[in-house]
Amino acid sequence: MSLPDRVIEALRCSVCAEPVSLTGRTLRCERRHAFDLARQGYVNLLHARIPAGTADTAPMVDARAAFLSSGAYAPLAEAVAAAGSAPGLIIDAGAGPGYYLSRVLDEAPDAVGLALDVSAIALRRAARAHARLGAAVWNLWEPWPVADEVASVVLDVFSPRNAAEFHRVLAPGGKLVVASPLPGHLAELGDLVLAVDSRKEERLEAALGGLFVRESAAEVVRTQPFSAAQVRDVVAMGPAGFHLDRDGRRERLEAAAGRDVTLAVSVSTWRKR
Protein backbone atom coordinates (compact mmCIF):
# COMPACT_ATOMS: atom_id res chain seq x y z
CA MET A 1 0.00 0.00 0.00
CA SER A 2 1.11 3.58 -0.67
CA LEU A 3 0.00 7.21 -0.35
CA PRO A 4 -2.43 8.85 -2.81
CA ASP A 5 -0.80 11.45 -5.07
CA ARG A 6 -3.01 14.21 -3.65
CA VAL A 7 -1.76 13.42 -0.15
CA ILE A 8 1.89 13.48 -1.23
CA GLU A 9 1.34 16.89 -2.87
CA ALA A 10 -0.09 18.24 0.38
CA LEU A 11 2.56 16.85 2.71
CA ARG A 12 5.70 18.76 3.66
CA CYS A 13 9.00 17.61 5.11
CA SER A 14 8.65 17.70 8.89
CA VAL A 15 12.28 18.81 9.25
CA CYS A 16 12.55 21.70 6.76
CA ALA A 17 8.96 22.20 5.49
CA GLU A 18 9.94 21.63 1.85
CA PRO A 19 7.68 19.68 -0.55
CA VAL A 20 8.23 15.93 -0.71
CA SER A 21 8.07 13.34 -3.45
CA LEU A 22 7.80 9.57 -3.33
CA THR A 23 10.62 7.45 -4.73
CA GLY A 24 9.99 3.77 -4.27
CA ARG A 25 8.86 3.46 -0.66
CA THR A 26 10.51 6.64 0.61
CA LEU A 27 9.31 10.24 0.87
CA ARG A 28 12.15 12.70 0.23
CA CYS A 29 12.54 16.45 0.06
CA GLU A 30 15.17 18.37 -1.96
CA ARG A 31 17.32 18.67 1.17
CA ARG A 32 17.49 14.86 1.32
CA HIS A 33 15.47 14.34 4.47
CA ALA A 34 13.83 10.95 4.03
CA PHE A 35 10.89 9.08 5.56
CA ASP A 36 10.19 5.44 4.73
CA LEU A 37 6.66 4.16 4.26
CA ALA A 38 5.68 1.34 6.56
CA ARG A 39 4.54 -1.84 4.88
CA GLN A 40 0.96 -1.02 5.89
CA GLY A 41 1.19 2.17 3.80
CA TYR A 42 1.44 4.98 6.37
CA VAL A 43 4.45 7.26 6.88
CA ASN A 44 5.91 8.33 10.22
CA LEU A 45 7.01 11.98 10.00
CA LEU A 46 7.91 12.35 13.67
CA HIS A 47 11.55 13.07 14.44
CA ALA A 48 11.28 13.29 18.22
CA ARG A 49 9.94 10.90 20.83
CA ILE A 50 6.56 11.65 22.34
CA PRO A 51 5.85 11.41 26.09
CA ALA A 52 4.61 8.07 27.38
CA GLY A 53 0.84 7.92 27.61
CA THR A 54 0.35 10.28 24.64
CA ALA A 55 -0.40 7.81 21.86
CA ASP A 56 -3.04 5.09 21.94
CA THR A 57 -1.59 1.69 22.75
CA ALA A 58 -2.24 -1.52 20.82
CA PRO A 59 -4.95 -2.70 23.27
CA MET A 60 -6.64 0.71 23.09
CA VAL A 61 -6.61 0.66 19.29
CA ASP A 62 -7.95 -2.90 19.22
CA ALA A 63 -10.75 -1.88 21.59
CA ARG A 64 -11.61 1.18 19.48
CA ALA A 65 -11.70 -0.82 16.26
CA ALA A 66 -13.91 -3.49 17.84
CA PHE A 67 -16.29 -0.94 19.35
CA LEU A 68 -16.65 1.09 16.17
CA SER A 69 -17.19 -2.02 14.07
CA SER A 70 -20.07 -2.97 16.40
CA GLY A 71 -22.09 -0.07 14.96
CA ALA A 72 -22.69 1.65 18.29
CA TYR A 73 -21.46 4.97 16.91
CA ALA A 74 -22.90 4.54 13.40
CA PRO A 75 -25.37 7.45 13.88
CA LEU A 76 -22.44 9.71 14.74
CA ALA A 77 -20.46 8.50 11.71
CA GLU A 78 -23.45 9.28 9.49
CA ALA A 79 -23.72 12.80 10.89
CA VAL A 80 -19.99 13.43 10.42
CA ALA A 81 -20.15 12.08 6.85
CA ALA A 82 -23.11 14.31 6.01
CA ALA A 83 -21.34 17.40 7.39
CA GLY A 84 -17.89 16.61 5.99
CA SER A 85 -18.64 15.39 2.48
CA ALA A 86 -16.93 17.60 -0.11
CA PRO A 87 -14.53 17.21 -3.05
CA GLY A 88 -10.83 17.84 -2.56
CA LEU A 89 -8.54 16.90 0.32
CA ILE A 90 -10.14 15.97 3.64
CA ILE A 91 -7.83 15.91 6.65
CA ASP A 92 -8.86 14.00 9.77
CA ALA A 93 -7.02 15.38 12.80
CA GLY A 94 -6.71 12.54 15.29
CA ALA A 95 -8.07 9.97 12.87
CA GLY A 96 -7.32 6.88 14.93
CA PRO A 97 -8.13 3.78 12.85
CA GLY A 98 -9.77 5.89 10.13
CA TYR A 99 -13.38 4.98 10.89
CA TYR A 100 -14.91 8.44 10.46
CA LEU A 101 -12.68 9.54 7.58
CA SER A 102 -13.49 6.41 5.60
CA ARG A 103 -17.22 7.08 6.07
CA VAL A 104 -16.79 10.63 4.81
CA LEU A 105 -14.86 9.41 1.77
CA ASP A 106 -17.66 6.96 1.00
CA GLU A 107 -19.96 9.99 0.71
CA ALA A 108 -17.44 12.06 -1.27
CA PRO A 109 -16.30 10.15 -4.38
CA ASP A 110 -14.14 13.06 -5.60
CA ALA A 111 -12.27 13.45 -2.31
CA VAL A 112 -9.00 12.07 -0.95
CA GLY A 113 -8.29 11.71 2.75
CA LEU A 114 -5.27 12.35 4.95
CA ALA A 115 -5.37 10.73 8.38
CA LEU A 116 -3.14 12.38 11.00
CA ASP A 117 -2.59 10.78 14.39
CA VAL A 118 0.22 10.45 16.90
CA SER A 119 -0.35 6.68 17.19
CA ALA A 120 1.44 4.63 14.55
CA ILE A 121 -0.48 1.61 15.79
CA ALA A 122 -3.78 3.31 14.99
CA LEU A 123 -2.58 4.40 11.56
CA ARG A 124 -1.70 0.84 10.61
CA ARG A 125 -5.46 0.35 10.48
CA ALA A 126 -6.26 3.78 9.03
CA ALA A 127 -3.94 3.27 6.06
CA ARG A 128 -6.03 0.25 5.07
CA ALA A 129 -9.45 1.73 5.89
CA HIS A 130 -10.12 3.21 2.44
CA ALA A 131 -8.54 3.13 -1.02
CA ARG A 132 -8.44 6.97 -1.19
CA LEU A 133 -6.87 7.48 2.21
CA GLY A 134 -3.25 8.22 3.16
CA ALA A 135 -1.95 8.28 6.72
CA ALA A 136 0.88 10.12 8.48
CA VAL A 137 2.04 9.92 12.09
CA TRP A 138 2.24 13.36 13.68
CA ASN A 139 1.76 15.20 16.97
CA LEU A 140 -1.24 17.47 16.34
CA TRP A 141 -0.05 20.08 18.83
CA GLU A 142 3.03 20.76 16.69
CA PRO A 143 2.91 22.68 13.37
CA TRP A 144 1.62 20.14 10.87
CA PRO A 145 3.77 18.82 8.00
CA VAL A 146 1.07 20.00 5.59
CA ALA A 147 1.09 22.84 3.07
CA ASP A 148 -0.97 26.01 3.50
CA GLU A 149 -4.58 26.12 2.29
CA VAL A 150 -4.70 22.64 0.75
CA ALA A 151 -7.70 21.11 2.54
CA SER A 152 -11.34 21.52 1.65
CA VAL A 153 -12.39 19.94 4.96
CA VAL A 154 -10.77 19.27 8.32
CA LEU A 155 -12.43 16.74 10.63
CA ASP A 156 -11.97 16.69 14.38
CA VAL A 157 -13.83 13.90 16.16
CA PHE A 158 -13.11 13.75 19.91
CA SER A 159 -9.56 14.92 19.18
CA PRO A 160 -7.14 17.74 20.12
CA ARG A 161 -8.09 21.08 18.54
CA ASN A 162 -5.17 23.02 17.14
CA ALA A 163 -7.24 25.93 15.83
CA ALA A 164 -4.27 27.73 14.27
CA GLU A 165 -3.32 24.69 12.19
CA PHE A 166 -6.94 24.01 11.24
CA HIS A 167 -7.11 27.56 9.92
CA ARG A 168 -3.74 27.44 8.13
CA VAL A 169 -4.32 24.21 6.18
CA LEU A 170 -7.91 24.95 5.15
CA ALA A 171 -8.39 26.51 1.74
CA PRO A 172 -10.51 29.67 1.43
CA GLY A 173 -14.11 28.56 1.82
CA GLY A 174 -13.01 25.34 3.50
CA LYS A 175 -14.90 23.99 6.48
CA LEU A 176 -14.07 22.48 9.84
CA VAL A 177 -16.29 19.72 11.21
CA VAL A 178 -16.05 19.11 14.96
CA ALA A 179 -17.68 16.30 16.93
CA SER A 180 -17.63 16.88 20.67
CA PRO A 181 -19.45 15.11 23.52
CA LEU A 182 -22.45 16.75 25.15
CA PRO A 183 -23.31 16.53 28.87
CA GLY A 184 -24.83 13.10 29.38
CA HIS A 185 -22.56 11.33 26.89
CA LEU A 186 -21.81 7.85 28.30
CA ALA A 187 -23.00 9.17 31.66
CA GLU A 188 -24.31 5.76 32.73
CA LEU A 189 -20.73 4.50 32.86
CA GLY A 190 -19.84 6.95 35.62
CA ASP A 191 -16.16 7.48 36.33
CA LEU A 192 -15.17 4.61 34.06
CA VAL A 193 -15.01 7.31 31.38
CA LEU A 194 -14.07 10.99 31.51
CA ALA A 195 -16.90 13.24 32.63
CA VAL A 196 -18.04 15.83 30.07
CA ASP A 197 -17.40 19.40 31.14
CA SER A 198 -20.74 21.22 31.37
CA ARG A 199 -19.01 24.26 29.82
CA LYS A 200 -17.59 22.27 26.91
CA GLU A 201 -19.56 24.14 24.23
CA GLU A 202 -18.48 27.44 25.74
CA ARG A 203 -14.87 26.30 25.70
CA LEU A 204 -15.23 25.13 22.09
CA GLU A 205 -16.46 28.57 21.06
CA ALA A 206 -13.57 30.17 22.93
CA ALA A 207 -11.04 27.88 21.24
CA LEU A 208 -12.33 28.32 17.69
CA GLY A 209 -14.29 31.55 17.64
CA GLY A 210 -11.33 33.80 16.96
CA LEU A 211 -10.52 32.01 13.70
CA PHE A 212 -13.82 30.38 12.70
CA VAL A 213 -17.52 31.15 12.53
CA ARG A 214 -19.94 28.39 13.50
CA GLU A 215 -22.36 27.77 10.63
CA SER A 216 -24.44 24.91 11.94
CA ALA A 217 -24.72 22.31 14.67
CA ALA A 218 -26.64 19.07 15.01
CA GLU A 219 -27.05 16.86 18.05
CA VAL A 220 -26.79 13.09 17.83
CA VAL A 221 -28.52 11.72 20.93
CA ARG A 222 -29.82 8.23 21.58
CA THR A 223 -29.85 5.67 24.38
CA GLN A 224 -29.34 2.01 23.64
CA PRO A 225 -28.25 -1.15 25.48
CA PHE A 226 -24.54 -1.87 25.34
CA SER A 227 -23.38 -5.47 25.38
CA ALA A 228 -20.64 -6.56 27.76
CA ALA A 229 -18.15 -6.33 24.89
CA GLN A 230 -19.30 -2.82 23.93
CA VAL A 231 -19.01 -1.58 27.52
CA ARG A 232 -15.56 -3.08 27.85
CA ASP A 233 -14.38 -1.67 24.54
CA VAL A 234 -15.78 1.85 24.90
CA VAL A 235 -14.00 2.19 28.26
CA ALA A 236 -10.76 0.54 27.13
CA MET A 237 -10.47 2.65 23.97
CA GLY A 238 -10.39 5.98 25.83
CA PRO A 239 -8.04 7.57 28.37
CA ALA A 240 -9.25 5.07 30.97
CA GLY A 241 -7.50 2.43 28.89
CA PHE A 242 -4.26 3.55 30.52
CA HIS A 243 -5.68 2.90 34.02
CA LEU A 244 -7.97 -0.14 33.91
CA ASP A 245 -6.09 -1.92 36.68
CA ARG A 246 -6.61 0.88 39.22
CA ASP A 247 -9.32 1.48 41.81
CA GLY A 248 -11.38 -1.60 41.00
CA ARG A 249 -12.19 -0.36 37.51
CA ARG A 250 -12.24 -3.80 35.90
CA GLU A 251 -14.77 -5.08 38.45
CA ARG A 252 -17.03 -2.05 37.94
CA LEU A 253 -16.66 -2.42 34.18
CA GLU A 254 -17.98 -5.99 34.31
CA ALA A 255 -20.91 -4.85 36.46
CA ALA A 256 -21.92 -2.32 33.80
CA ALA A 257 -22.48 -4.96 31.11
CA GLY A 258 -25.90 -4.81 29.43
CA ARG A 259 -26.67 -1.33 30.73
CA ASP A 260 -28.48 1.27 28.62
CA VAL A 261 -25.90 3.89 27.60
CA THR A 262 -26.43 7.33 26.08
CA LEU A 263 -24.69 8.62 22.97
CA ALA A 264 -24.83 12.43 23.08
CA VAL A 265 -22.60 14.30 20.65
CA SER A 266 -22.68 17.67 18.92
CA VAL A 267 -21.52 17.79 15.29
CA SER A 268 -20.79 21.40 14.35
CA THR A 269 -19.58 22.98 11.11
CA TRP A 270 -17.32 26.05 11.07
CA ARG A 271 -15.99 28.35 8.31
CA LYS A 272 -12.73 30.26 8.29
CA ARG A 273 -12.94 33.91 9.26
Score class of each variant (00 low, 15 high):
V43P: 03
G174K: 01
A131D: 06
A147E: 13
R124E: 08
A58P: 14
A136G: 13
P143E: 10
A52P: 05
A164T: 11
A179W: 15
G173K: 04
A48Y: 12
G84M: 02
A74F: 08
V118D: 12
I121W: 00
L114M: 10
F166Q: 00
D106T: 14
A48E: 15
V118H: 04
A115C: 06
V43L: 07
A179I: 15
G41W: 04
D92G: 11
M60G: 06
A171P: 01
A95L: 07
A108K: 03
L46D: 09
I90Q: 04
V43Y: 03
P145G: 09
P51Q: 13
L155K: 10
A164V: 08
E107H: 14
A55N: 14
T57P: 13
L105Q: 01
I121Q: 05
D92T: 10
A77G: 12
D110R: 03
G71V: 04
A108S: 12
V150G: 00
G98R: 05
W138P: 03
A135T: 08
R161C: 07
I90G: 02
L101I: 14
V153E: 06
H47E: 05
A93Y: 00
A127G: 05
A79N: 10
A151V: 08
P87R: 14
V150A: 02
L155I: 03
A127W: 02
E149K: 07
A163V: 15
A163P: 15
K175P: 00
F166T: 00
G94N: 05
Q40E: 12
E142Q: 14
F67E: 04
A151M: 01
A171K: 00
V80F: 09
V43D: 11
G88R: 14
R161P: 05
W138H: 03
A115I: 08
S119R: 10
Y99G: 01
A135G: 09
R132W: 00
L123D: 03
Y42L: 06
A126C: 11
R49S: 12
N139Q: 12
A81W: 06
D56I: 13
E142G: 05
S152R: 12
S159T: 11
I121S: 08
A81V: 04
H130W: 01
D148W: 11
D156F: 10
L176C: 10
A55D: 13
N162T: 15
A120G: 05
G84Y: 06
Y100D: 09
A83H: 11
A58I: 08
V43E: 00
K175G: 02
L68Q: 05
R103G: 04
A120E: 03
A111I: 01
S69N: 15
S159R: 13
G173A: 14
G134K: 09
F67H: 10
A48Q: 12
